[in-house]
Simulated scan of single mutants.
Amino acid sequence: MNAHQRSTCCSIAPPDLLGRLAVTGNAKEREAAVRALATSAAIRSQRAVMGRLNRQLNLNIGQLVGFAVTPERRLTIYDNQTNGRTFLPGVRARDWGQPAVADDAVNQAYDGSSATYEFYRDVMQRNSLDGAGLELVSSVHYGVAFDNAFWDGSQMVYGDGSGRIFQVGGLTRSLDVIAHELTHGVTELTAGLVYSKQSGALNESFSDVFGSLVKQYSLKQGAADADWLIGAGILVPQLGTALRSMSKPGTAYSGDRQPGHMDDYVDLPDNNDPRNDNGGVHINSGIPNRAFYLAATALGGFAWEKAGRIWYTVLTTRLRPNTQFDEAAQATVDVAGRLFSATEQAAVEGAWKEVGVLS
């Protein structure tokens, strides 16, 4: 495989953070980080293969793995019972339409998946991730004190957190984390953005955008009132307040390297070193993240109504696997003019100019 075909795994924990803790953290942090990195590496191939099969063969994920695509079952939550990936999805813990159970993680995964499904249905008129009613499958209690959550190409998987990197139970509590990871499924089945360098940073940024929008929609928050944080309160306090800040990239946690302007773009190799983050996909996503924040706040009101509609249209109709920042930016400008007016178009263009992508 060449660099653009190499298999990847989109997980919520920034690999550069895990890589740094694996080298420089205390003994407990090192142990937790190494465990998270090893497990993430083990599921890379499956995710890449699933995405390519879906796009190239025009199949849906449900056909490939046997999950339902029916109006009767929107989602199902399984308990992985602290086992590894060979046990996925695990034991069925809560079916669609069933009442809450005693397990908080099961209920949180259920509620977060449902909220994401309803956002895409009601706001973007998209019928689940594939547009055809795909059942959203989730497994909780994955691994032992596993510090990550990820979309593996067919379903969501949540660890419990170790209390050394992520707070115990934090990964299923965070609605924007759930929506972020599920949006990787939308991206796989539409733009197919290659998970490397700028296209990979766009992949991460679109997930942050819609993760934040799902949270804002659930809270009925306007753009001016949102915190624009991804994963607020899920890291242990000594590491930081969140995984990313869309309004102030580089301020979310200790060692956060996200830039908010192209002048500070971090040019990293995509060489399988987790500290280099697939060429900086979680790092340089700060630039398009801030552009969206600037556009949304300039447009005002509810961010999903205008800025979100523009970004969704671009993601699902205008991007190619190797799209770069400037191409994505110009596409949002064009779509803003087509969907709305010159006023919205100017706001979007101004946002990209402010972060140095357009001139």
Rank of each mutant, 00 (worst) to 15 (best):
P71G: 08
T190M: 01
T24D: 15
L358R: 12
Q56P: 02
R121F: 07
V186W: 04
H180A: 07
A109H: 02
T297L: 06
K248H: 13
V177Y: 01
A242S: 14
D277M: 08
Q155R: 15
M262E: 04
A291C: 00
G280L: 05
L171A: 00
V34Q: 12
R121D: 09
G250F: 08
V314C: 01
G133F: 02
G279S: 07
G169M: 04
G308H: 04
A36I: 06
G280Y: 00
I61W: 02
C9Q: 11
R244A: 15
T24P: 03
S196Y: 11
H184T: 08
T116Y: 11
V101P: 02
M1A: 14
Q324G: 08
L171W: 05
Q63E: 15
P259N: 12
I287E: 02
M124S: 07
P237A: 14
G62I: 01
T297K: 09
H261D: 14
E31H: 14
T316R: 05
Y110G: 05
L17Y: 02
T70D: 12
M262P: 01
R309K: 15
E344A: 12
Y195R: 04
R55M: 09
R173P: 04
A298G: 15
I165V: 13
F210Y: 11
V157G: 04
T172E: 03
A303G: 07
A336K: 01
W304I: 03
A109Q: 04
K306T: 10
Y117R: 14
V214N: 05
G185W: 04
G143D: 02
A42W: 00
D104W: 07
I310S: 00
Y158D: 02
R94C: 07
Y253R: 11
L136I: 15
L235C: 10
N289L: 05
A328F: 08
E204C: 09
N26R: 13
W228G: 03
L268A: 10
R74E: 03
S154M: 02
Q345R: 15
H282R: 09
H184I: 12
R35P: 03
T187I: 12
T82Q: 13
Q198E: 15
A41N: 13
P15A: 07
T190Q: 06
F87S: 11
Q330D: 13
V168Y: 10
N80H: 06
A13R: 06
I61L: 11
A226W: 02
G25K: 13
